[in-house]
């Protein structure tokens, strides 16, 4: 009899739990079963009237039903709590398209970023980063670079003078002699920095940036130059970058070359950046003229070297698709903002 009653209670309660709608009804169901006058409580109380034989059997059965129903109640309760949490979270939702707060970052200048990148590349390759004065002597800027006073090669650069022998450096090459005087081969140096020329038009700024590289050791050749520049350019513009040499003239290198770099924009197919040629004229380079080594006290019979120099403004233009050199020194935030 009790057995049937228990099964009945179990079935009824399961149904009620299943169909309950909220924590409150669930609680009412709990009281109805397990409360002071709950059905299971009453049945448990009636245990003492049972025979010794029946008591353990019925007791076990009651426990089974109790734990079953407690489980069901717990499950349902968790379900409701979960539901409630979901509702709460849903109500707390925000419009994620609202603007962010208080973490507006600025941006580095594109030329400074090119300098950062190139110096990292070159330091990795064993170059030391050096600097020289922007106001230089005629000696370091010209004479030590095999450009004597009143020599026609001075015409290659319109120079700003302070006085007869003091000038604004027209090339970062000015730093070569200063370093050669104090360093012992083998050495590799780069020098990034500002340079000045007395010209100002739509494609020339009187102030611009160059990076000079110099390597001196025994038996340095044009092939070494090719190898080193290829590595640097690949690291700067991407693995598929290639370079090409063309003859040129600089008083401080012999042979002298212009180095064309495959256009990183179109990969050599031809585009507006490279004016359809697929190549960009980016560097001047060459084998250090033995006269230049000798002027700075390096034995040109034992040592040779290569040097390269390139325009960082142009490099920054290529890397960032900038088409107006004037933007660099205006510092308009509308320009800088685009390179965050």
């Amino acid at each position: 009899m009790i057995k049937e009653e228990l099964i009945n209670i179990n079935q009824e309660a399961e149904k009620e739990i299943e169909s309950s709608n909220d924590l409150k009804t669930l609680n009412e169901i709990r009281i109805k079963i397990f409360g002071k006058s709950g059905s299971i409580t009453i049945l448990s109380k009636g245990m003492r009237d049972l025979s010794n034989d029946d008591r353990p059997i019925i007791g076990a059965l009651i426990n089974e039903v109790r734990s079953n129903l407690e489980n069901k109640l717990k499950q349902k309760e968790e379900f409701f709590k979960n539901q409630e949490l979901l509702n709460k979270l849903e109500n707390e939702k925000v419009d994620i398209t609202e603007p962010s707060k208080d973490c507006e970052i600025g941006a580095l200048h594109p030329i400074a970023r090119v300098i950062d990148k190139l110096t990292d590349i070159c330091v990795e390759l064993g170059f030391s980063v050096v600097e020289g004065p922007e106001v230089e002597t005629d000696y370091y800027n010209f004479e030590a670079m095999n450009i004597p006073k009143n020599h026609p090669s001075r015409d290659m650069q319109d120079t700003f003078f302070i006085s007869e022998n003091i000038l604004l450096r027209s090339q970062t090459s000015a730093v070569q002699a200063r370093e050669m005087e104090v360093r012992k081969p083998p050495f590799k140096i780069i020098c990034p920095g500002k340079t000045y020329r007395n010209e100002n038009d739509s494609t020339h700024s009187p102030i611009f940036h160059q990076l000079e590289g110099l390597v001196v050791d025994e038996k340095i050749s044009m092939a070494d130059l090719k190898a080193m520049l290829t590595i640097i350019m690949k690291k700067l513009f991407g693995e598929d970058t290639t370079i090409r040499f063309r003859p040129s003239f600089f008083p401080f290198t012999e042979p002298s070359i212009e180095v064309d770099v495959s256009c990183p924009n179109c990969h050599g197919r031809g585009c507006s950046t490279c004016k359809g040629t697929g190549m960009l004229e980016l560097l001047g380079a060459g084998i250090v003229n033995p006269k230049v080594l000798e002027i700075s006290g390096i034995d040109s019979k034992k040592y040779s070297g290569f040097a390269f120099g390139f325009g960082l403004d142009r490099t920054a233009m290529i890397l960032n698709d900038i088409n107006n050199i004037r933007y660099f020194y205006k510092n308009d935030v509308r320009f800088l903002k685009q390179m965050k």
Binding site: V129, K188, I220, K226
Partner: peptide, 17 residues
Amino acid sequence: IDYKLFKNAYITEGCPH
């Protein structure tokens, strides 16, 4: 020319500024 040809002056230490 293979660009990995560079043989000389490779044992220099690169010092940042």
